[in-house]
């Protein structure tokens, strides 16, 4: 199952939105391959008919009234932003 080449490493870095310099890709691919090789041990387990775990503690999620419980804190929400202007988060221009 395992084995990540430089192209795959480049694609994964892109998907993860982490810039990786071209010259660092082979090292990254090797690291990721080692980790994935370790995971391949899972192939030896018989998982036929086994349900994938969704909740480690069997419990019903609680429901609450569908009402507003919080809000009106614009300035607190923006206080940590690297760039906030006129009550908004500011980002570079997005042109698709």
């Amino acid at each position: 199952m395992s084995g990540i080449d430089t192209d795959t490493a480049r694609r994964v870095a892109k998907l993860a939105r982490i810039r990786v310099a071209e010259e660092d890709l082979p090292g990254l691919a090797a690291d990721l391959s080692k980790i994935l090789g370790f995971m391949d041990e899972l192939g030896a387990v018989d998982v036929d008919g086994v349900e994938p775990m969704t909740s480690v503690t069997p419990m019903r999620l609680k429901r609450r009234e569908d009402v507003v419980t919080d809000g009106d804190r614009r300035d607190a929400v923006l206080a940590n932003a690297p760039d906030a202007r006129a009550g908004f988060f500011a980002v570079p221009k997005v042109v698709e």
Binding site: M39, V45, V50, E51, P52, V56
Partner: peptide, 10 residues
């Protein structure tokens, strides 16, 4: 597969 193995571990 990992989530199924997790079920078995529990």
């Amino acid at each position: 597969r990992a989530r199924k193995v997790r079920t078995l571990i529990r």
